[in-house]
Write a protein that binds this DNA or RNA. Structure first.
Lengths: 332, 332
DNA sequence: TCCGGTATCGATACCGGTATCGGTAACGTA
DNA sequence: TACGTTACCGATACCGGTATCGATACCGGA
């Protein structure tokens, strides 16, 4: 049971394939009579056009390839959401792929996507290995690298500097009087942006001669549960801490829960600082510090940039779109 | 600057297109010498195969279309994650689409995807309008409907009964001694599964002659912040409530935060019940009730089923894969 | 020397659309 | 009547791969 082809629609309508094609596309040079006949025939036999043939013939697709590392951190679904919203109604279609923070897997996904001849690609981060970068460069379509700024983009980058974000958070926390810092992290080594924030934070501490008095990290990806466990472990080892920096808000919220269970006042006794500005950081009944990252907006901007680069002259577009995360210490 | 074609690789290697094709695919009937020459040429000029031509020729693709309503509820990213994991290494590629809980948008996405001739489709829920169902049925490929069971699947359904889940939660809460119930919901009218849970819960209450004493709902999608606001509003109107049922765990956790701020003991004074069994329901420093839904597992099962139905005889496969959510009142 | 088998290669057709271009019919006008 | 214009239609080529099948070269054995 094969799907009906345009040829079959044409036969059913008693016209040629070419006339049927024109009729369905609303092209000119078709009589009203035939338009009706073809539409009716197509409807009747349930014809659905074949993008494979169309795209092969037209030498381009309406596909935009999007690669993100994971879905288990809400920021990426939000980026996808922003991309999807901008593409809505443009006739473009996003194709998603998950790299699981694995460079090899990422390259295979990108190669796979490129074999579909997408009109543009949006990938996460700037830290791809050289062979992946070459692949992207040779694709001959606009490449937008999203989420990060610390590095050199293939074509365009849309994001924020995680190094700077970490450093500024450190500065703000020191300015607020904190002195004994600890770090709780997850998935370092894989999550390069979290690692950049940590490095930036440490640089910020170093400016006033400070450093982390304790660290607790795990290779797993971030989660509330992990943040809670690692925080408990860290506070047991080093109870004198007065400020904890986390790899992100999920971990930080978990840490906040740990403090609640231990009866530790937040933020008076221990200040908890994360990254992202998730919903949870605001809804919590007490304040935790965070940097608001405009995830959805970055997705939207990346998609818009990709669309522009497809049509406009690429040279006239800004190569780098920088966002600055707003730091909040007070939970608002 | 067009991408190089197989023809160009062949010319560069000094062989015919056909030999080049065979060499790159590792097919037989090519000399070792030519294999090397073609591989080298392809590598040198950065050849990437063209899936459009391949799939058009082969009359099938390696695409699996996946449609979910939103990314702003973590359960869907998790389903996607499960699908993606199962497809990993099978050569199949997932293509995602977001319907935003809009039936018209959903139909357009499905039509769009079908025009790419996917090898299977995975869509959310069983409540598509008739024209969408017809579209799916006529596609001639395996259709897996995921997340829900209350309805008749086109081919296969993988999920749980939300009606039953609501009803059972009501029973469990009544059995635990609660009597004055309230409901806090979001996105009803759009989120049909949340509506089913509510209806089931009400049926469960009705069995012992009970009903919701107060409801607070909003058309927006669920979020922690919304759950918090609606809970505050509801408790102001109806402070005598001793149990609140929520459309899901996001909302419930928001409600829990609202109670904390109001100094209301949870669960002793008010029991809070959600749905999904999210991470947050466990990490919270006090217990909230929830039904654990195996989101990732449903995604995995749906993907596996799609793969099987593509190869095996469809008739031998179970049409319905049912999961039963485990209810937890105690936060574990 | 001749023959069958094996290894290797390439010409051709085809997948299902659309661009292109030439053809036909109808009509108005000189 | 002859001709140009307009409206409409369809045959053909092409996009970039692979399946198929026939061709060629080489080898060993009779």
């Amino acid at each position: 049971m094969r799907r009906p082809t345009l040829e079959e629609v044409a036969t059913a309508a008693g016209v040629s394939k070419m006339t049927a094609s024109r009729a369905l596309r609303g092209a000119r040079d078709v009589s009203k009579d035939n338009i009706l006949k073809v539409r009716e025939a197509a409807e009747r036999i349930g014809y659905v056009g074949n993008q494979l043939a169309l795209s092969l013939s037209a030498q381009h697709t309406n596909l935009i390839g999007v690669v993100v590392p994971t879905m288990s951190n809400v920021v990426f679904p939000e980026v996808l959401s922003g991309i999807s919203a901008v593409l809505e109604g443009t006739g473009m279609q996003a194709v998603f792929g998950l790299s699981e923070y694995d460079a090899t897997k990422e390259r295979e996904i990108i190669r796979n996507m490129l074999s579909w001849r997408p009109a543009a690609m949006i990938v996460t981060g700037l830290d791809q290995p050289d062979d992946t970068t070459r692949l992207l460069r040779q694709a001959g379509v606009p490449i937008v690298q999203v989420m990060d700024l610390d590095g050199e983009p293939v074509d365009f980058s849309v994001g924020l500097s995680h190094t700077a974000a970490g450093e500024e958070m450190a500065g703000a926390l020191i300015a607020s009087g904190r002195q004994r810092f600890g770090y709780v992290g997850s998935g370092l080594g894989r999550d390069l942006r979290a690692a950049k924030r940590k490095a930036g934070f440490e640089a910020g501490l170093a400016r006033t001669g400070l450093r982390f008095l304790a660290e607790e990290t795990a290779p797993e990806l971030s989660s509330l549960g992990l943040g809670k466990r690692l925080t408990q472990a860290l506070l047991e080892r080093e109870p004198e801490i007065d400020c904890l920096y986390y790899s992100n808000d999920d971990m930080a919220a978990g840490g906040a829960f740990a403090c609640m269970e231990l009866g530790i006042a937040v933020p008076s006794r221990i200040l908890i600082a994360g990254f992202n500005g998730l919903d949870i950081a605001q809804a919590l009944p007490f304040s935790i510090a965070t940097s608001y990252s405009p995830r959805r907006q970055m997705g939207e901007t990346a998609a818009r940039l990709a669309l522009q680069a497809m049509t406009d002259d690429r040279k006239t577009l800004e190569r780098v779109v920088a966002f600055t995360p707003r730091i909040s210490l007070a939970g608002e």
